[in-house]
Write a protein that binds this DNA or RNA. Structure first.
Lengths: 227, 227
DNA sequence: ACAAAAGTGTTGCGCCTACACCCATGC
DNA sequence: GCATGGGTGTAGGCGCAACACTTTTGT
């Protein structure tokens, strides 16, 4: 290992989107990985990331990862953790500052080039470095945070029904939720604003469309007004 | 600003301990700062920290900060956040990975050398860089975390009474708590184990001494088993 | 009319708060 | 005995989970 005095700094991103599993057809979490084209771990799958450029902020770098690998813009982006144990990269010393992002579900089937591929979050291949640990942690953060914070809208479009929002929660948490109580929980939280529009074309009573309350975000987390 | 391509990596630590304010005599949060002896911000107060050595883990570096500035060992240590905006240091590009620590209250009056001094957390001088923001965020994390997690024991010795533990919570949160309900809350959480010992020498019924339940820590946070 | 999901009402349980009250020790 | 905090008991309220019920559309 190279302990000659330099520590490399990288930024990686765990990107979540929703997609239906080809086998069961159920909606679940998916995330994109890139195939490594260099040693170490050549040929294995890893999180998108790269060195931090001197003229870009950390969150900017994460956004760039996301754009380069998926051509998507994150609807939610938050720093996850800085991973920096001495032995996490076999040949050199790398500290990775990892972000996690939520993106609107898009083409999550095999991408343009074969070096980027979307996987189901609970059927991942063997990952390079400590990236399996990182994904586990990101999944844990997503699941715990969705329970007390209102971030699920980030998986959806500009407007959405409360049933769609509930289905996001159900897919992330992996369990069914009571529609009536879910409705009251969301409505009383102020996270969402009703529009005059309704979703038509269904074979039943047309549900109201809602929009995310942008002001709500500022009441969210402490004294940091980031990203 | 130097954007020639190198990004420096530093580790800093916000160290909290309890101490009685000289004026009011009430117990409050205190933290140590070091006086900068170089430009930029020469003469101003800053968080203890320094560059990351290539052969030490991030948490190790934080522990070293703590030992070097206060000669204390942390009773609790956790990563806070990685701060890395491009302009946070005027002359070069520095990314700081910041830890926060709790230490048993010790000599928090002016230290041996004049370059390290303990300050009351809500009467800090002007700080160098973005360190005021960092301390604000660390305070917010401490205050929100003490409500749902059981970390207050880290300010105390090996054994303590529930009243001492309650006084820690009161000092951190800045508000009085009901002794009866606090007792039940702690006891039902399993965070603490009663000993056979009692604290004597008081002018009233001798209170039972408790010990922290080391097993409890593992049930705490997600899939990361750190520090 | 019927199906199916949207949306509303209601009840009961559990937890948390507030506060009354007894207990054990030093002086 | 009295003062002082240690420690226990208990009633009211709030929030949430469960589930019955009504509404509104398409076919």
């Amino acid at each position: 290992m190279d302990h000659s005095g330099t520590v490399a700094l990288a930024v990686s991103t765990v990107i979540f989107a929703l997609g239906s599993q080809p086998d069961t057809g159920r909606v679940g979490l998916r995330l994109p990985l890139v195939r490594r084209i260099r040693e170490p771990y050549e040929g294995q799958w890893a999180l998108p990331g790269g060195p931090l450029r001197a003229d870009e902020d950390l969150a900017e770098a994460a956004r760039r990862n996301l754009r380069d690998t998926t051509a998507l813009t994150p609807r939610y982006l938050e720093q996850l953790y800085a991973f920096g144990t001495v032995d996490r990269s076999p040949d050199d010393r790398v500290v990775s500052i990892v972000y996690w992002a939520l993106a609107e579900s898009a083409e999550t089937t095999s991408g343009e080039h074969d070096n980027v591929r979307w996987f189901e979050a609970d059927h991942l291949p063997t990952l390079a470095f400590d990236h399996a640990t990182i994904v586990d942690y990101a999944l844990w953060r997503l699941r715990t945070k969705i329970e007390y914070s209102r971030i699920a809208h980030a998986f959806l479009g500009e407007t959405f029904t409360l049933t769609q929002l509930r289905e996001v929660h159900e897919a992330v948490l992996g369990k069914p939720l009571d529609p009536a109580n879910f409705r009251r929980m969301i409505e009383s939280s102020d996270a969402v604003i009703p529009t005059d529009l309704r979703l038509t074309g269904t074979s039943h009573r047309p549900p109201r469309l809602y929009r995310y309350n942008r002001d709500f975000a500022f009441a969210d987390r402490g004294p940091l007004t980031l990203s």
